[in-house]
């Protein structure tokens, strides 16, 4: 089932990688410019009409963001994850809000939390979750939340940190 769709897609697009997670979940990697077209095709031709989620993964070491669109076909009960690698610098992506109105919400969140731009997406620049945030978008991996929290907020003294494995061993099984 999924193989047919993938071979169909391979005819039209350059699939960079195909990872079979299980019999009904497969992840594809498509380049930035063709990804939304492929999603369009998946939606209208192959019946992947339920949009599950859109999120980004920060691969700081490679200088890339990975956008993941997970689509679900409720009839065949299969999922396809479309992965797109985009540059971390000047991150932007083709908007997919014309396919599902609800995608605009995900794109608003990604814009705010990762700083990924989706030109043309409605209300993209309205504050969504954060208020008055300045500096690095918080979900980027180079934003150190602990250092930020320690310097920005008033802390109560006396907090200690333990390594869970050794601490648990000391407390619970001191003789082992």
């Amino acid at each position: 089932m999924l193989e047919n769709i993938i071979s169909e897609l391979e005819k039209q697009f350059q699939l960079e990688a195909v990872d079979h997670n299980s019999s009904d979940l497969v992840f594809l990697t498509i380049d930035r410019d063709h990804a939304v077209m492929a999603i369009d095709l998946l939606k209208w031709k192959f019946g992947y009409k339920h949009f599950v989620l859109l999120t980004a993964v920060d691969f700081l070491e490679e200088g890339k963001f990975q956008l993941t669109y997970i689509l679900n076909n409720p009839d065949t009960k299969t999922d396809i994850g479309v992965r797109v690698r985009i540059d971390r610098e000047d991150a932007n992506m083709v908007s997919a809000h014309h396919l599902w109105p609800t995608v605009a919400t995900y794109q608003r969140e990604l814009k705010e939390m990762f700083g990924i731009d989706f030109p043309g997406s409605p209300r993209l620049n309205d504050p969504f979750i954060l208020e008055g945030w300045e500096g690095t978008p918080p979900y980027r991996r180079d934003f150190d939340t602990k250092a930020f929290a320690a310097s920005f907020y008033h802390q109560r003294e006396g907090r200690t940190t333990n390594d869970p494995a050794t601490y648990m061993k000391e407390k619970l099984y001191p003789n082992e």
């Binding site: 918080p138 939340t145 930020f148 929290a149 907020y153 008033h154 802390q155 109560r156 006396g158």
Partner: peptide, 19 residues
């Protein structure tokens, strides 16, 4: 509200209310 609890390293929550 006392000391941040499990959100001690969260960038978006305050760590002590009495300030």
């Amino acid at each position: 509200t006392i000391n941040g609890g499990m959100y001690f390293d969260s960038y978006n929550t305050i760590k002590r209310l009495d300030y």
